[in-house]
Amino acid sequence: MRGCFAIYYREILILRKKLTRQIASMAVAPLLYILAFGFGMGKDVEIGGRSYLEFLIPGLVAMNSMTQAFAIASEINIARFYWRIFEEFQAAPIRNRAYVTGEIMAGITRALLSVVVILVIGAVFGIILSYNLLFWLAVILNGFLFSSLAVCLAMVVKSHADQALLTNFVITPMAFLGGTFFPVDRMPDWVQALLQFLPLTHAANSIRGASFGQPTDPGSYLLLAGIGLVLFVAAFFCVNRAKE
């Protein structure tokens, strides 16, 4: 497993070098959503007896932990196609699973960091919810799932352009439909049924439930863990496929 820590160490070192920039970029989108949707559109809106801003913050936690975990795909691609650092990993005596684990750990770290940024922004606007163990567990599972997906896709694509295309098709729709900005139960039944297939719907429900101190659905946690595990194993094979 030492190889996995070498990979993780490298990613964290890169993250540390541009920490200020990273934190600033992690803060921009949530800040805009809070201003536009939280204060602009949702000022007088209440959902389930809570202000829209209280509803929005856990949704943003789910969305941002997803996008930041998935963002390692871009980092991997830069290392692979631009700097060619990936070849240094391929030539090293480390197993595919060590490489995948190291990258996923880096993805989860980025997800956690982005969540801390949102919670701080939320606190600045006076929103402090219950950030308990179940809340963090859901964030970590969400990060695990989407960073595993990121490794898989980063190994399959052939260029940066392909990567951007996948992000547009996979991540953007999920960010808007997965219960981030509105309650899924207000949608028509058939849409609700469809949205149950999105992992982000389960992540947003779990994160929101935990942060409101409400009972959460263990099935959602199991589902996130299950899909994450399948993608984690798939990532081993995808790394193998990346070899010419």
Partner: peptide
């Protein structure tokens, strides 16, 4: 291995 193309981490 010293590959033909430079593959160092430029930020580091």
């Amino acid at each position: 291995l010293v590959p033909q193309t430079l593959n160092l981490d430029h930020e580091l």
